[in-house]
């Protein structure tokens, strides 16, 4: 029993190994989506025009930000239902302060403060007071969204400063829109943090088993709080983008059920609601899949309920894929 007591040879043949890797990789959902888009393009060539693809990509940027933020919370085994509420409230806060001080920096400061504040509050309640994330974020989303509606009497706040609009959406830097730069920066930083830092490793450990992580010297509470803070900030920045895009701040920039797109994208991309799983690359793929399917169905001139059902079907398929993935691990 000295050697070969288990940590031994790969159990499967090489082809089995390859298949398993394919199933586990993020490429599979993307391949599905590409095949689907290709099929639709036969009927409706407008799908594959550069203009359309650009539009899809741009429209998906806020969702991408929110989903990347949500990924951090899912990795530590939590869930953040407050995405839409925080996005709306952050834009409203910025709109209100910029009425007094019409300065983009002040507006951005307000956006970040709301995101960070709500996120840290969630973190404190979940990590410090051991409250269930589902309910905490549900309660704060009601309060935060309600507060934003209250403060604006459900009116849109138009007349945002030019600098704010340019920073959040339209502005041009080296021929690329500012919103693309912001999203790219968030994605790259998030990927590096999760994949290449001690901090990121510790987040996964917390999600896999918080008790083990604690014994092994991971400051569990602080990691959970940080994950919620990241999620709050990402949702707030998504709100900034949405407001800049429609040139007005409002409490209802997003309907609450955008959360289902966010969770759907994360799950399609390989994140697990049980924690400890998921990559930024996967989330990018998940968002792309959701955005492409929605766009193609709209172009095919189908009713909204087709889009709704297709999203449901996709999440179901992604979950089936997740089962295949975990089966490989837990035989």
């Amino acid at each position: 029993m000295t050697a070969g007591a288990g940590v031994g040879e790969p159990r499967n043949s090489r082809t089995g190994d390859l298949a398993r890797r394919l199933v586990r990789s993020e490429a599979l959902p993307l391949a599905f989506a590409a095949a689907w888009v290709g099929a639709v393009a036969v009927v409706e060539p407008a799908v594959l025009t550069r203009r359309n693809l650009e539009n899809v990509g741009l429209a998906a940027l806020p969702l991408l930000l929110a989903a990347v933020g949500q990924l951090f919370v899912l990795v530590v085994g939590g869930i953040d239902l407050s995405t839409a509420a925080v996005a709306g409230a952050a834009s409203v806060a910025a709109g209100l302060v910029m009425r007094e001080v019409p300065n983009a920096a002040v507006g951005v400061g307000a956006v970040l403060a709301v995101g960070l504040g709500v996120g840290l509050f969630h973190g404190l309640a979940v990590a410090g007071l051991r409250m269930p994330a589902f309910l905490v974020t549900l309660a704060t989303s009601s309060a935060v969204a309600g507060g934003a509606v209250w403060a604006t009497r459900s009116q849109k706040l138009a007349g945002l400063p030019e600098g704010f609009l340019s920073l959040g959406w339209q502005g041009d830097l080296f021929g690329v829109r500012s919103s693309v730069w912001v999203a790219a920066a968030v994605v790259v930083v998030a990927h590096l943090v999760l994949a290449r830092t001690v901090f990121g490793r510790q987040l996964y450990a917390v999600g896999l088993n918080a008790a083990t992580a604690r014994v092994s010297g991971v400051p569990v509470g602080r990691r959970i709080a940080a994950a919620f803070a990241v999620s709050g900030v990402c949702a707030a920045v998504a709100g900034l983008m949405l407001a800049a895009r429609q040139k007005a701040a409002a409490a209802d920039l997003w309907r609450a059920d955008v959360l289902l797109d966010v969770l759907g994208a994360a799950v399609i991309g390989g994140a697990s609601l049980r924690g400890g799983r998921g990559t930024v690359l996967g989330v990018v793929v998940g968002v792309a899949v959701i955005a492409l399917i929605g766009n193609t169905l709209t172009l095919l001139d189908l009713d909204s309920w087709h889009v709704t059902m297709a999203k449901g079907g996709l999440i179901f398929l992604a979950a089936g894929l997740d089962i295949l993935r975990t089966r490989g691990d837990r035989r």
Binding site: T212, S216, G217
Partner: peptide, 18 residues
């Protein structure tokens, strides 16, 4: 609270030394 049962062993063994 001893092991991360579902992490790769490299990740599990390196956790405390991270």
């Amino acid at each position: 609270d001893g092991l991360l049962m579902d992490a790769a062993l490299t990740d599990e063994v390196s956790l405390a030394a991270l």
